[in-house]
Amino acid sequence: MEGFDWASVSASLPFLMKGLSYTVQLTVVAAIGGTLWGILLALARLSGIAPLAWAAAAYVNLMRSVPLLLVIFWFYFLVPVMLQWVSGAAYPPKIGPDRSAYVTFILFEGAYFCEIVRAGIQSIPKGQLGAAYAIGLNYAQAMRLIILPQALRNMLPVLLTQTIVLFQDVSLVALLNVTDLVGAAVKIAQRDSRLVEMYTLVAVVYFVLSYALSLGVKALNRRIAIIR
């Protein structure tokens, strides 16, 4: 194949940008939602209440031993059925793969964030919890006011690194025909028969973005290290 044909690329830029904005949205929502869900899971695992800790551990281990691709498809089938069951409607709600992906990634990434949060919490000396109880705080207050703020700061670099992994993992939704950055490129590639050009382009764009992000995390790392 002689010569790249960049005409399709430039003509389809608006469509590609739409895909990129979906990718970014999904990454941000899943990172925030996954962190919150991960904190809840970590607290459950460390709660000392046996059934709760066991259920959380089972959930985390299951999510972490199944391919993400499989999880994405599971939720794609399950989310409409679950919503229909909850709402009691006659038809499953119209929730395309683009929207079920939000649920998928929050629940899936939660399992990974849980382990990061758990390590973060465990890095705080036990004496602090004792001290918090001594000044009359209850468990929830001690976690919210004393432990979590420090733990979250300790684990921020790891959380951000995991978010870059998430940013790349999001590309798998393209296999469910969602228009994320990769999905948009695949669609244009198929329509215009320009696979080589579009796949090269999307690789370059992804590389530049995630390399820049990883440099950002490194810089942040250095700043936090100095504060400490």
Binding site: M1, Q168, D169, S171, L172, A174, L175, V182, L195, V196, Y199, T200, V202, A203, Y206, F207, S210, Y211, S214
Partner: peptide
Amino acid sequence: VELFRNIPLLVQFFLWYFVIPE
């Protein structure tokens, strides 16, 4: 390390199968 870490695996598969042989 940076090259292989910063491109999604799915895209790497596309590159190997459709682009690199060209």
